[in-house]
Design a protein around this nucleic acid. Structure first.
Lengths: 203, 203
DNA sequence: GTCTATATAAGGATAGAC
DNA sequence: GTCTATCCTTATATAGAC
C-alpha cells in the first residue's frame, strides 16, 4: 500500500466538504483544491462525482454502525436495558459529531443526493436502522418499556433527535455540551422524562 | 389584488420543490415549468433565485410560528405545563408536515442555502427558537422540570426530533402515524419517558 | 498519478418584443 | 406579465502528454 493513500485523502476532504456545505454546493474543484491537486486527477481514483459521494455515504454508515455495536457489545450480554440504550446513543452521537466527517456527511446530505446514489447506498443504511429496531425490540421483550409505547415512532424520534445535532452542535473546549452530556440528557429524557411529576402528564 | 396571484403561485411551487428536492437540486426552470411559465418570467416577480428562496424560508418560519402560538394561546394563561408543551409540539409538527410546504422547506434546506440567504433569513428563525426557549423557561420556573435538566440541550433535542420527521414522515390514510399520534408519543416521552420503571435508569 | 487543455451541458440572469 | 433569444459562468467529464 502507498505511503500516503491519495484516494483516501480525496474521500476525507470530500466527506468534510459535503458535511460542511452539502453535496450540490461542493464542486469537484473544491475537493481537488482541498487535496492540492487538479480536478482531472480525481478521475484517476473515481469515475464520477456520484462515485465519490456514494463511497463517502457508505463509509459513514460503516463507521457509526461499528462504533455503536462495539460500545453495546462491550457491555456484555447481561447488561441492563438502560445501559444498552445509553451506549447505543453515545456511540451514534460520537460517530456523528466526533469520530470523523463521514457519518455527519451521510446524515446531512443523504436526502439531497441524486436518487441513483440514494438507491445504491441505502442497503447498509437500512441495515443500520434495522439494528436499532432490534435493539428496541429486545428491550421491549424484556418488558422494560411501558406497553403503550409505539416502538417505531420512538425509534424515529430518538434517531431524529440525534441526527439533528449535526445541525446545531459545534465542538467546544468546555464540556457543557460534550457529546457525553448530550447523550446523557437524551437517554435520561427517553428513560424517565424531564418532568418532576410525570403523574401530571396529559391523559 | 389579482384573481390568481402568480407571484404566490411561484412561491408555492418553489416551496414544494425545495422541500422535495433541496435548494441546489431545484433549478429556476423546474420552478417555472411547474408554474407553466418560462424561466425569464420569474424575473418579473423576483430579482433572483436567492430572493425566491429567502421569501420561502421566511414564510415557513411565519407559518410555524403562528400555528404554534395560536395553539398554545388557545389554552389560556392557566393551562398546565404539560398541556402547553403538547400544544406547542403538535403545532410545530402540524406546520411541518401538514399545513403547507413552506415550513418543511425551511427545515430541510436552511443549512444548504448560500450563506447570504441564511444571514438575511435567520432573524425570524432565531426569534422562533427564542419562543421555545421562553416556553421551557416558564415551565421550569413553575418547577415542573426536574432540577438537573439542561433546558438548552432538551430544547435542541426536542426540536431535532420534530424537525427530523420531515425526513421520514410520509402522509398516510391510516392514522397510525398521524401527526397527532407522533406529537403524543414525543410529548409522552418528554414528560414521563418510555421506561416502565424509571428507577432502573442509569445513575 | 497528476498534469494541461478542452468538450459539453446546465443554470442563472439580461435584453427587448409583444 | 409573459414571451423568445442570448450571454456568461460554472461544473462535470474526457483526451492525451508527462
Amino acid at each position: 500500500m502507498p505511503r500516503t493513500d491519495s484516494r483516501r485523502l480525496v474521500l476525507d476532504h470530500a466527506a468534510r466538504l459535503f458535511r460542511e456545505r452539502g453535496y450540490a454546493e461542493t464542486s469537484q474543484r473544491d475537493i481537488a483544491d482541498a487535496c492540492g491537486i487538479r480536478t482531472a486527477s480525481l478521475y484517476y481514483h473515481f469515475a464520477s462525482k456520484e462515485e465519490i459521494v456514494a463511497e463517502v455515504l457508505n463509509i459513514g454508515v460503516a463507521t457509526v454502525s461499528a462504533e455503536v455495536e462495539r460500545r453495546v457489545d462491550a457491555l456484555g450480554p447481561d447488561a441492563a436495558p438502560a445501559a444498552r440504550l445509553q451506549a447505543a446513543i453515545t456511540g451514534h452521537l460520537c460517530a456523528l459529531l466526533e469520530l470523523d466527517n463521514y457519518t455527519g456527511a451521510n446524515i446531512r446530505i443523504f436526502g439531497h443526493v441524486p436518487p441513483r446514489v440514494r438507491e445504491i447506498t441505502m442497503g447498509p443504511r437500512d441495515a443500520y436502522e434495522a439494528w436499532w429496531r432490534d435493539l428496541l425490540a429486545k428491550i421491549a421483550a424484556q418488558g422494560a418499556f411501558r406497553p403503550e409505547v409505539d416502538l417505531k415512532v420512538i425509534r424515529l424520534l430518538l434517531l431524529g433527535a440525534m441526527n439533528w445535532t449535526v445541525e446545531w452542535h459545534r465542538p467546544r473546549p468546555d464540556a457543557a455540551e460534550s457529546v457525553e452530556a448530550i447523550a446523557r440528557s437524551l437517554t435520561d429524557m427517553a428513560l424517565r422524562g424531564v418532568f418532576a411529576e410525570p403523574a401530571a402528564a396529559i391523559a
